[in-house]
Simulated assay, not measured.
Amino acid sequence: MSIHPSAIVHPKAELDPSVEVGPFSIIGEHVKIAKGTKVAAHVVIDGWTEIGEECAFYPFVSVGQPPQDLKYKGEPTRLKIGKQNTFREYVTLNRGTQGGRGETVIGDRNFFMAYVHVAHDCIVGNQVILANAATLAGHITIGDHAILGGLSGIHQFVKIGAYAMIGGCSAVAQDVPPYVSVAGNRAKLYGLNLIGLKRHGFSKERIEALKGAYKLLFRSGLTLREAAKQAREKWKEIADVESLVSFVEQSERGISR
């Protein structure tokens, strides 16, 4: 284990022998860190926080602090971080709340650029990119492979689907379906995230099916029930279409249109 002499690591913290902790960093009593993780200088990791393998914490990151919730009274809520995540300078991640999920959860292989904030009870999937100063309020769910542009702000309880793209400086107050692009204040739909889908290897057949389903759901003037029915009938063999339709049907906040 490589711990700089100026770092403060609580004797009850559980660190794998391969963990590196840089100068002036602080690791709290209830923290668990798996093998291969590197903590740079001036990082604070506190609270009931569990960190997976091979994560990287850059200077001035602060994770596991109490939620910014006036109802919080010191309950032992949690922050769980998966493996191979990168947290650049000044990223902040808060623990959950007793009135929410009780934990904030970060998946695997995500990239958090400088000044990103993730509030209490959020769930971030896998291989998500949050650009500089993207901000998540409480109780937000982000699907796999989503990208959030710099300076974007997401309202509490919003759900963002897999492979979605949020444009920079957007204010997102309603749910964002999977596979689409949104931008603006308030954010509006701008079609499919075609560049992202192609980069992730979506076939022409899958993309064409999603294009058709998108037009039925958001541009045809049909009721949601009728549009969903037609989409399922026409592309019943395409799982992506079912994912898109189901997300829209289950939305509680409404869809960013």
Rank of each mutant, 00 (worst) to 15 (best):
E242K: 14
H42F: 14
A146K: 03
G74H: 09
A231N: 10
L93P: 05
I33H: 04
T92H: 09
Q98T: 13
A183W: 05
A7P: 11
E20R: 14
S256P: 01
H139W: 05
A228M: 01
V176E: 00
A146C: 01
A137K: 10
A173R: 11
I195Q: 13
G201Q: 05
W235G: 05
H120V: 07
P59Q: 07
L194P: 03
E249V: 07
N132K: 04
K229V: 07
F247V: 13
A114H: 03
V105T: 12
V176Y: 00
A133G: 08
I27F: 05
G149C: 03
V39F: 02
E54D: 15
E20K: 12
G100E: 08
S25G: 05
A171S: 09
L79P: 03
D240F: 11
G196K: 03
L189Y: 01
G28I: 05
Q65W: 06
D144W: 07
G149K: 00
P67C: 08
Y163V: 03
I129K: 06
I26T: 08
E29P: 13
P11A: 10
D121K: 05
S203P: 04
L15S: 06
H117I: 04
G47P: 04
W235Y: 14
H145A: 10
K234F: 11
P11L: 07
G138N: 06
L151C: 12
V44Q: 06
A41E: 14
I154V: 11
I207S: 05
G212E: 05
D69V: 10
L222P: 09
I207R: 09
A133F: 08
K32V: 15
R78G: 08
T104D: 06
A213E: 06
A40Y: 13
L194Y: 11
F247C: 11
E226D: 13
K204M: 12
I140D: 00
A56Q: 15
L224N: 04
V158K: 00
I106Q: 00
H4C: 08
I3C: 04
R206P: 03
A34Y: 12
E226R: 15
V245F: 01
Y179K: 01
T92Q: 09
Q84A: 12
Y179V: 04
Q65A: 15
G161Y: 00
A162R: 15
K38Q: 08
T135I: 12
Y163K: 08
E242V: 06
L151F: 14
L93K: 02
P17Q: 12
C122R: 02
V241R: 07
S246I: 08
V61A: 01
D69G: 02
L192Q: 08
Q127D: 15
E14Y: 02
R199G: 12
L192Y: 03
A173L: 14
L70F: 09
V19Q: 09
L224M: 14
K198V: 14
P178A: 05
A171E: 04
V116C: 11
L197E: 06
A209Y: 03
R206A: 15
W48A: 09
E242D: 14
Q127G: 11
A164C: 02
S220C: 10
G254A: 02
I27W: 10
A231T: 04
T97W: 01
N85T: 11
F57I: 06
F87S: 11
K198S: 09
A171K: 10
E205N: 11
V31G: 05
G100K: 02
N110M: 10
I142N: 03
S2C: 04
I81W: 00
R109L: 09
L15F: 01
P76Y: 08
F157M: 04
F247G: 09
V158M: 04
A162L: 06
